[in-house]
């Protein structure tokens, strides 16, 4: 479904290279986890796939269902069924969750040639999805993320994912800042959304969320490259041993705490 080929990316403003040749293939029905220390480029990778303008692709390609998406704007990529759950969800005061999502849902539906929903149909549809993250119906009447707690913001991202029903979702540190109950709820929601026709890529620091969502593939990103790939056992090993055994001595010092 998504194929990332030898992807090199730098920050547009100052030319700092962040991704240095990433290769990754994600198929339908798969759950991937991308792990790695701070500053290794995990978050950048998901933003670049989503089409963030602050980054420039200097080499390589990103193919979605066989077609390059590098020339597409962020909204056009969303129309294809690409979703990013933000690490820091943005507040939009005065715009209700319901309004934002209905507009988003209908825009995407229109682009994909699916039926649009009127406000009443949408409300019913959205309320079903609320159960996935165990939120009350009032949640959709609140302004997008405005005054939300950290945990509510993360839940809201997963709620939006459920509503928009994307083909592939990048979840950027969705687990950080969640207490254990919230983590279980969110993980449970993600498990229900994931099926044979879509794919989920979790970007995370910790193995914790992987106790609840079992990845098919685990990748470790070090200094802008995928240093190692494996199955869920790799995540467990990382939890026990940290990243040091994967970092070559020459790059270890550079990598310290870049964020």
């Amino acid at each position: 479904m998504l194929e990332i080929k030898d992807l090199h990316v730098c920050v547009e403003e100052d030319g700092t290279e962040i991704l240095k040749g990433v290769n990754l293939t994600i198929n339908e029905g798969e759950v991937h986890a991308i792990m790695g220390p701070n500053g290794s480029g995990k978050s950048t990778l998901s933003k670049v796939v989503a089409g963030h303008e602050a980054y420039e692709v200097t080499q390589g390609d990103i193919l979605f269902e066989g077609e390059s998406i590098l020339e597409l704007e962020a909204d056009e990529r969303a129309h294809l069924g690409l979703f990013l759950a933000f690490q820091y969800p943005v507040e939009v005061p005065g715009v209700t969750n319901k309004n934002l999502l209905r507009q988003a849902y209908n825009t995407i539906a229109q682009e994909q040639g699916r039926e649009e929903l009127d406000p009443l149909q949408f409300e019913d549809y959205a309320k079903e999805k609320l159960d996935l993250i165990k939120m009350k119906p009032e949640f959709i009447e609140r302004s997008v993320n405005a005054g939300f707690s950290g945990g509510e913001k993360k839940r809201n991202e997963i709620f939006q994912m459920a509503v928009l029903d994307p083909k592939i979702s990048f979840l950027d540190e969705t687990d950080s800042g969640l207490d254990i109950d919230a983590l279980k709820t969110v993980a449970n929601g993600i498990n229900q959304i994931a099926d044979d026709d879509n794919a989920v890529v979790m970007v995370t620091h910790y193995q914790r969320i992987l106790d609840y969502i079992t990845p098919d593939h685990v990748h470790v990103m070090i200094d802008g490259e995928i240093a190692k790939s494996g199955d869920k056992d790799l995540a467990i090993k990382l939890e026990e041993q940290g990243y040091d055994w994967l970092i070559e001595p020459a790059t270890a010092s550079v990598n310290g705490e870049q964020q």
Partner: peptide, 28 residues
């Protein structure tokens, strides 16, 4: 901010619709 616009674009809205939505919320 660019972040606000990127967020809404990621949800499928084009840039002008994103600004419109943000401004509309602001003036509600």
């Amino acid at each position: 901010g660019e972040d606000q616009i990127f967020y809404l674009q990621q949800r499928g809205m084009d840039e002008d619709d994103a600004i419109s939505l943000i401004v509309n919320g602001f003036c509600k």
